[in-house]
Structure formats: structure tokens, C-alpha cells
Simulated assay, not measured.
Amino acid sequence: MRTLSLIVPCYNEEQSITIFYDAVAKVFDSINKTSDRYQPEYLFVNDGSSDKTLSILKDLQKQHPETVHYLSFSRNFGKESALACGLDASTGDLVAVMDVDLQDPPELLPKMIDLIENDGYDCVGTIQKERRGQGRIRAFLSTKFYNVIDAVSQVRIEPNARDYRLMTREMVNTITSLPEYNRFSKGIFAWVGYKTTYLKYESQPRAAGTSHWSFMQLVNYAIDGIIDFSDAPLKIATWVGGISCVLAVIAFIFVIVRALTIGGAVAGWPSLVAIILFLGGIQLFSLGILGEYIGKIYLETKHRPKYIVQEKK
């Protein structure tokens, strides 16, 4: 029997864990209905939860010691670190990444397995057809984020793609070999290549609880994704700075010619202050972009671990 590892990041998900396990267990019963094809390996990664998530995981592991395992961080390191930890710890022939809130329907797993086994795919990803349950502004900005990152990045990231996917061991080994500290999983999955297809599905409501992603966290996540997979912001800053310099030279020549031909300087302190503030703003904007990249380099050179596992079973 082959093994299918399920990587499940958890952050304050005490209400969803048992529901998730029961739902996925039913899917594996259907997968193995005619013959024992896949043994599940549940890898729950507790990302520094402050509720009863860890105690529930411990109880679940005691009930199913052969298939359920957990890794608990010393603090909250973020979902990207939890995904990296799960991938590092997985041992399955196939590896799936899923959210514990069941917005990723486990009923797709049999189809995903068939596509890998019969059609030769290395990865089967998923795409939400619609973003139900999100505000219009958040859904609009999410769509625009994918448009922007596709325009500036060298790899294509499917719009509305989820982290939910099934991968072969070969692809997972390639991903875990990447040493970078700053990780944007959707970009990494696309960057490594391999033969990939996508399944579309209707968005599902959360099984329990509420989302822990705030609007600003999503904005920062989008900025990290763009910076991690493109140097376009640096090029934009360079072009903006160059154009500003050219305009400043033209304005300087205009002032000199006007003074020589008409006489006297053009009065207008407000316009002068506005120009100074405009150029100063461009400089600070450019320095901010440069600072983001330097900050990423600074974190990479520290060589700190992406996560710290305090307890595991």
C-alpha cells in the first residue's frame, strides 16, 4: 500500500480539526473501497495556536497513532513556515496540502489521484471559481494581485489558485531542497515547474470558526509574493527616478531660458514647495522599495530556521 501525506496547517482551529478528520477519513474509505490503495498520513502543523488546538491534536493522535501525527511550533511562524515544515516532514509517495477549515473539498482527492496515476501529472492544483464569503473590495484586490504578479513575474501563477494541491514525491523533494527563508508557496509551486493541471471547484464555506487573515495581512502577503518573485519594483523605481531627473533638467532649462528672454524669475513659492515635496516623495518611495529588498536579503543572510518545532508525535 502506498502512502498519501496530508499537510494541514492549524492556527486556532479547535472547532475544525475533528470535523476535518472525519470528512477526509470518509474520502479515504471510498478511495480504498475496492482495494487498499493509499494509507493516509495526517501531518497537522500547529502554528503556535493559543486555543485548544494542540490538546485536540494530541487526543486525535492517541486515537489514531498509526496515521495521525502533529508538529507544534514554539510560537506562531506563519502559514508559509507551517507548509514548509509539513513538506519537510512528509514521507508519502503523494503529498497533499489542505486547509483544515474544509474550504478545500477533500472529495476532489480521488480525481486528483487519478490524474497523477493515469495521466502522468506531477501536480494537481485547484482553483476557486468564485470567492464567496469575501467582500467585493477584497475579491477585487485579490484578482488584481494575480494580474500584477503575472505581469511582473517570470513564472505564471494561476488566478485564484489555492494552496490545496496533490504532488508527487519527486516534486516535493525539489521544493524542500530550496533553501530560501522568505517563502511564497504559490510562486514556489509554479517556479519548480513539473507537469501540472488544475481542477476548478465552487468555493466552500468554512466548516467552523472564522478566518484569521486580516486585510492588512493579505496586503503584506501580496507584497511579499511580488518581491519574492520579481525585481520589477526596483526597475519601476529606477524608471520613475530617471524620468523625474529628466523632467527636473527640462524645468531648469526652461527657467534659465525664461529668465534670459523675458527677465526675472517666475514667482510662486507654493509651486516650488509642491515640486520639492513631489520629488522627495519619489525618493522616499524608491528608498522604501529598495528597503524591502534589502530587508529580505538581511533575513536570508541570518540563516535562521524557517520554524522551530517544540513538540511532535
Rank of each mutant, 00 (worst) to 15 (best):
S5W: 07
L6E: 00
L6D: 01
L6M: 13
V8G: 05
P9H: 03
Y11K: 14
Y11Q: 08
N12T: 06
E14I: 01
S16K: 07
S16T: 10
I17Q: 06
Y21Q: 06
Y21T: 00
A23P: 00
A25G: 03
F28A: 06
I31N: 07
K33G: 00
T34N: 13
D36F: 13
R37H: 10
Y38Q: 06
E41Q: 15
Y42N: 00
F44I: 08
V45Q: 02
D47M: 04
D47H: 01
T53S: 14
I56E: 12
I56H: 12
K58I: 12
L60T: 10
H64M: 04
P65A: 09
H69R: 14
Y70Q: 04
S72N: 15
F77A: 11
F77T: 03
G78M: 03
S81N: 10
A82H: 00
C85V: 08
G86K: 01
D88A: 11
A89T: 05
S90W: 01
T91Q: 15
G92A: 13
L94P: 00
A96M: 11
V97G: 02
L102C: 12
L102N: 04
P105I: 09
P106F: 09
E107L: 11
E107G: 04
E107H: 10
L108H: 08
P110M: 13
K111A: 15
M112C: 07
I113V: 15
L115F: 10
I116C: 14
N118I: 10
Y121Q: 06
C123Q: 09
T126I: 08
K129S: 03
E130F: 04
Q134Y: 14
R136G: 09
T143W: 11
N147H: 12
I149S: 00
D150N: 15
D150I: 04
A151K: 11
V152I: 14
S153G: 07
E158F: 01
P159S: 02
R162W: 05
Y164I: 01
R169S: 13
T174W: 03
S177K: 11
P179D: 14
E180D: 14
N182S: 13
F184L: 03
K186T: 01
K186Q: 07
G187H: 06
V192Y: 07
K195C: 06
T196W: 06
T197R: 02
Y198G: 05
L199C: 04
K200N: 09
A208C: 08
T210D: 15
T210N: 13
S211V: 07
S211T: 14
H212A: 09
H212Q: 12
F215T: 13
Q217Y: 08
L218Q: 11
V219G: 01
Y221K: 02
I223V: 15
I223D: 04
D228Y: 06
F229S: 00
S230N: 06
S230V: 05
S230G: 02
A232G: 03
P233R: 07
L234Q: 13
K235A: 11
W239Y: 13
C245E: 08
C245A: 09
V249F: 13
F252K: 03
I253N: 01
T261A: 12
T261Y: 11
I262V: 15
I262S: 11
G264F: 11
G264Y: 09
V266P: 05
G268L: 11
W269R: 12
P270K: 04
L284W: 14
F285K: 05
S286W: 05
I289W: 14
Y293S: 06
Y293L: 06
I294G: 00
G295S: 14
L299N: 09
L299S: 10
E300S: 00
K302I: 03
K302T: 05
H303E: 14
Y307L: 02
